[in-house]
Design a binder for these strands. Structure first.
Lengths: 207, 207
DNA sequence: TCGCATACTGTATATAGTTACAGTAGTCCT
DNA sequence: AGGACTACTGTAACTATATACAGTATGCGA
């Protein structure tokens, strides 16, 4: 597939972002206005090339039917909703419809991976992970499933309570390390259920 | 808010589902076809009622601009694109079409405020702000415009170079404080241009 | 049973929007 | 220097869409 010029890419980006922002594709006129073109044909010819190169589709004659197709659409990441489970849920919700407290929507590119059904988010309480620069109130995105590796930050259910800690293996035995000298490390007595490993973090300014 | 009749609700549902399926709103004709109406006015009058009752909006005269407003749409927060300007841009791009390196998409709820045209993001280089728990590689969302207050994290142009620092006022004079003992504070010789104040942060796991 | 709202058919039209044609200027490759 | 390609200005259809106007039928509550 032939590459796009900067201008062509800008057009495609605009179409895609307009769709996201307004829910519908822009018209030729709106594109021209945005880029300051005085002629609609500037748009037309750019779009023709984008179509030829396979980056764009539209239904002939239909209003606002432009849509970005292939690689760009893939580059230009999909928006995914991630459920925010309460900070301290009693148990662990099964797949399906957990009692989400809210939802974060991020695009795949922003968080650097593709969220799946196994991805969820938790609001952090406390400062036990301050050594890893995770603060009280931060929203942590986790993924359930993969076995944690030494040094990864994980959410775990230890003896019935959920915590966010660093997963550390010492002498072949896993335990959970708090990244704050004021907090104790946790050596699980019985059950150590890893709920998810840290994937991303979202923080809002407090002011 | 007055209740909808079954037919009206069906119309609203169709509009919403068409948007989801096709990415754009249906035309009056498409609605008529779907419901088997032979007259467009059947659609028109239903839509008029939906508008009156506040369940629907559209931009007068614009093609495919129907959108369902009420309860559903309000729950779902809007997705907004924020341009990611390069980590160390030479100058500062004006409004309009900055040379964005990419874009982050977030929903209004996730970042806790409504991004505007004056919102942008920068990838952090270096660890000078580690004391504020901002790491190398983090994506920082900033807002241009508001005057910074003492203690806020800001992106500033100091003598030609961009840095991320804490804005501190001492003896009535503003300067920029690095949150890392290894980095020097910056007392601007000449120009101190505040480019934006910290609003949010997005971090990806590195592994 | 009168009035009123919903739920339509049918016709018409202005405007929104797509798309074609004709042409100019600059860049890059050969 | 010429050809291919990008990046535009300008004009002009022609089609798609929204929306107004004029009616008809049916059900429902006062």
């Amino acid at each position: 597939m032939r590459p796009l010029t900067a201008k062509q890419r800008a057009l495609a980006d605009f179409v895609e972002s307009h769709r996201r922002r307004h829910g519908s594709a822009p018209t030729y006129q709106e594109i021209a206005d945005h880029f300051g073109f005085r002629s609609l044909n500037a748009v037309t010819s750019h779009l023709r090339l984008l179509r030829q190169k396979g980056y764009l589709e539209s239904d002939s004659g239909k209003a606002r039917s432009l849509r970005v197709t292939s690689p760009l659409a893939k580059l230009r990441s999909r928006i995914v909703d991630i459920a925010v489970l309460g900070a301290i849920p009693a148990g662990f919700p099964e797949e399906g419809a957990p009692e989400a407290e809210g939802c974060v929507s991020v695009d795949v590119g922003s968080v650097g991976f593709t969220p799946t059904r196994n991805t969820f988010a938790v609001r952090v309480r406390g400062v036990s992970m301050i050594g890893r620069h995770i603060l009280d109130g931060d929203l942590v995105v986790l993924e359930r499933g993969p076995d944690p590796r030494h040094g990864q930050v994980v959410a775990a259910l230890v003896d019935g309570e959920r915590t966010l800690k660093t997963y550390v293996v010492k002498n072949g035995k896993p335990y959970l390390k708090a990244e704050n000298p004021k907090y104790p490390d946790l050596i699980p007595a019985q059950e150590l259920v890893i709920q998810g490993v840290f994937k991303a973090l979202i923080r809002k300014a407090r002011d």
